[in-house]
Write a protein that binds this DNA or RNA. Structure first.
Lengths: 236, 236
DNA sequence: TAGTGGTCTAGACCACTAG
DNA sequence: TAGTGGTCTAGACCACTAG
């Protein structure tokens, strides 16, 4: 079916792993053995093996051989975006305010900054079907050059706002998803009671040195939140 | 710093991308140009470029060149497991029942089976600090060979139960996370009111032909659920 | 000591691109 | 037509493993 030699070798070994001919933890034939078996050069075999390794089927140990990987069945790929992880389409984003404030203790902790450092606060509300469905707070350590003009912020994503300070390529992000009571402020913006639960997604941005460069929370009304994820096979 | 030639080429180009010397959408120097530049063979350059492609920095177009990728800042890696995505440690799993039933309309839809096909239902409750924190339902089309003996099921994960029918290696999984009211049955097992919200994680398992081989829901009490995810750079 | 994977070379021929 | 990436070869030397 496939024309390239290395693709055929790849599929052949992949089939043998999937059919349990080679079992997790076991060694597959050596590169030299495979070269002979398939009547090809070792480099072509290595190309197939590299692909198998990249897709999470095998891992090499120098001096020993290539081994079949244990399967990880709990690693998922998730697309998240403040405005995408909602069932339905967000029709409007209302920018409530952009302020420069002194950080409270929580912010000092999350942003790892001195208490004297000023912080830019951006507050927004997301609207769907004329209903407020989410309230969003973002905190960015203030430095000259950061856009604090409303027009520049309104339609920018969180990473984009921070991006002229650090390269988007070296940016790291972490999110945490929980459900809890929203607190008075968020409840007020959402027009709900503060003992109604909401979904809270916390985002932290890091630069290449793993220093925080942004932190924020999005509060979603219970019935407006939906996240989908699918299994990733290759465990790196 | 790095001894291998290809690793140095890799880092050199990576740096040039991160510093915006080569911008997203732009072409980087050709393989031949890079071979000359680094005084090495084309194969060594290709090895570096392959690594850059695997890590999501560039993509090749045959006959044209290698191009810098646009950055995807919304793809996350998520570890999910019924019993792990809980703040704190689950201390016990109570197997409530294992039954063989006729599917209702919902199950016929989710499992893509005829209404005459029997389905194995597994119900469990997760306990932490002597408190019920989650209720779990799993549905698997019945076929001979499936373990329906309680002992075999009790400590197995969902994929493991299905795994003697299809290879774990070809198994696909999809999950969906939402918050909603639990319904009477789940509320009852959790000992909460059915108009209290819970987090519902829906799991679907597929075989290599993308046919469903298992479906289930886990209902978490609001304050017991926590998920963490981190950005993935390489977009495949 | 024989075997393993890791790196690297200097060539070859191919299909495709774009002027 | 000159240049590009894609595949493949037949060698070389290396550090490491395990009997």
């Amino acid at each position: 079916m496939s024309k390239e030699l290395y693709t055929e070798i790849f599929h052949s070994i992949k089939r043998d792993i999937e059919s349990n001919k080679y079992r997790p933890g076991e060694m597959i034939p050596s590169e030299n053995a495979l070269s002979e078996l398939f009547g090809t050069s070792r480099m072509t075999v290595r190309k197939a093996l590299l692909k198998l390794a990249n897709e999470g089927y095998i891992y090499p140990i120098a001096g020993k051989g290539n081994f079949v990987k244990e399967i990880m069945l709990n690693r998922y790929s998730l697309h998240y975006n403040e405005t995408d992880s909602v069932n339905g389409e967000i029709e409007d984003i209302v920018l409530i305010s952009v302020d420069i404030v002194k950080p409270n203790i929580e912010l000092v902790y999350y942003l790892q900054i001195p208490q004297t450092k000023r912080v830019v606060v951006i507050k927004r509300v997301f609207i769907r079907d004329s209903v407020k469905i989410a309230y969003d707070e973002k905190y960015i350590p203030y430095y000259s050059g950061i856009p604090i003009v409303e027009n520049e912020i309104h339609f920018s994503s969180f990473p984009e706002i921070v991006s002229d300070k650090i390269s988007l390529f070296s940016m790291q992000k972490r999110i945490s998803i929980q459900a809890a009571n929203p607190g008075i402020i968020a409840a007020d913006y959402l027009g709900i009671s503060s003992d109604e639960s909401v979904i809270i997604v916390e985002q932290t941005l890091f630069d290449e040195l793993s220093e925080p460069v942004g932190w924020g929370r999005t509060y979603y009304k219970i019935d407006s939140f939906e996240l989908n994820a699918r299994l990733i096979k290759n465990n790196s």
